[in-house]
Design a protein around this nucleic acid. Sequence first.
DNA 1: TTGTATGCGTTATCAA
DNA 2: TTGATAACGCATACAA
Lengths: 340, 340
Amino acid sequence: MKMSEIAELAGVSIATVSRAFRSPEKVRPEVRERILRICEKHNYIYNAAAGDLSRQRTNILGVLVPTANKSVFGDTVMAIQEKAQELNFSTITGNTLYDKSIEEKLLLQFQERRVAGTILTGFTIGGEEFIRQLMRQKIACVVIWEKLDAPDINYVGFDNYKAAYGATDHLISLGHKRIGLIVGPHEKVGRVKKRFEGYKRALEDHGLTFDPSIVVSTEPDLLEGRQAMQQLLSAPQPPTAVFAASDRLAIGGLATIKERGLRVPRDISVVGFDDVEFAAYCDPPLTTVRVPAKEMGSLAVKVLHDAIVNGNEKVKQYCLDTDLIIRGSTAEPRKSSFGQ
Amino acid sequence: MKMSEIAELAGVSIATVSRAFRSPEKVRPEVRERILRICEKHNYIYNAAAGDLSRQRTNILGVLVPTANKSVFGDTVMAIQEKAQELNFSTITGNTLYDKSIEEKLLLQFQERRVAGTILTGFTIGGEEFIRQLMRQKIACVVIWEKLDAPDINYVGFDNYKAAYGATDHLISLGHKRIGLIVGPHEKVGRVKKRFEGYKRALEDHGLTFDPSIVVSTEPDLLEGRQAMQQLLSAPQPPTAVFAASDRLAIGGLATIKERGLRVPRDISVVGFDDVEFAAYCDPPLTTVRVPAKEMGSLAVKVLHDAIVNGNEKVKQYCLDTDLIIRGSTAEPRKSSFGQ
DNA sequence: TTGTATGCGTTATCAA
DNA sequence: TTGATAACGCATACAA
């Protein structure tokens, strides 16, 4: 069933049928009614691809995310889909697994589908030029989960540097002098690098020395967090507190601490990053940095929508707030640490 | 840049260019080379929508999931996307939030995009007829996370009934006589209903009476699990073990138990369902039912691919295995329960 | 192996 | 307010 058949049944031209959908005000109400009834009756379903082709524009959004199931990316992806649906956009989502070649394949797929816009979760370091290339193809872009320095690229993110600084600062202000770090792949991922730098800077600002022997960089996952914590606890001079730059890492670390018969926060403090839902249900509940996962998703869609539908050319850059959620996993270091 | 321009530059017809992509064997190697080089040089990007329109067939898959960020659905969705990408399919994913009207909107969107196939995560009870309707529109369908009775509908699921039976049976065989249940919305969701029935039947088979006063049905989430457990513990005769038909529910419940100063599994045993990654990191590690989340996703895509690309008409029904993962949250009931 | 010509289901321009 | 018709970018049947 296509428009021309509906047109015939309704005794009008195909153009009128099209208008009945896209600009109802331009067609006489009775005619419109008749058309819609016939569509209903014969179960007509609009062909979006044909329409897109003719209109030279789709309402598909491409979404690139490292892993939709990990961390709180899932919340972001879901918020994107909800908002997109609300604004009558379809989304096609791809998981890059932090892999450059997959990312490229996905992006090509997006281009072939002529997506109207793309949402990039962070980007590979040095990827600005790549994004500009997309923009030149008239594809609206917005980077999320990151705050960029580039003045010409949309983003809806938060300050990873500042958030990490704050988390570390929290530990310092509790009196910790020896603070370990478990962090993701900071060589590859911009936002992770920023967290690393925030940690380091907080240390330096308070006259604490940065000690690479209590810093572990690994994949941001539970098992890896577990192993990383083993490494930290086995250091010649183990830390009294650890900042894990992702909750998965932190929760994995908690397991190791428990295995060793140590207690949190009595023997060691731990702060995470993300505030995944389970963080509040850990034992003890995890002190962590809450990130505006859902907000970023829906706001990013709004930015794209505004650029695509309203043709708004202005660069939009939103740096949202994060919150340090203090729960039970952080406390002052044991007095014994100081020689009791 | 479109095919006709490439054709001109290459000094061949547009048909040849098209063939260079879709049936390379039908074009002389040198010509093909030349065409590809020119495409490369001028940065030609294939227009999938135009191709789809002409070919009267897309390679888009529609994926319907209750919530992509909850439970282990995220694993399934991601597996779907990976497999789809591997087979050169795009996926468009929608979250229904268990809402009938959203589901319908999403499905309409899928139809408008002329998806070649859809993956439905379970379905609303009585939705068989609806699926058949999609099938009549030549849309390949496969239901996941569920085992269906209908002989004509593809599915890649597991036996929710049996899995729940097994979990309950585990508790019974440990010696528990009074076993509570926390379960999702079993009136709405087929697979949840099956779990409910599995629990009930296990009780009956062992001569234990089903007591509605220690059964709570609620949204399958952490907070709800917490509240449900409060309700169970406040019952006139509280259970010595609880089967929570989702890990989120179980983990929420664990928090309540801890708050009350009780200990797991000494005072009460808990078994969950899903085996989310955090289950192994709970305190104590959660005994739970592992579900083949990723396998279902990739296998479902394969089924669709086979039906779409190879035109395989045979109904495919896969019932995958689940495993009861026994960890630290279940044990024999305290002797005192029996009157010590 | 290559080219010609037609069709895919819409939208949009221009007249009526 | 409506209709006729030319795009839109590609695939394919058929002819060469």
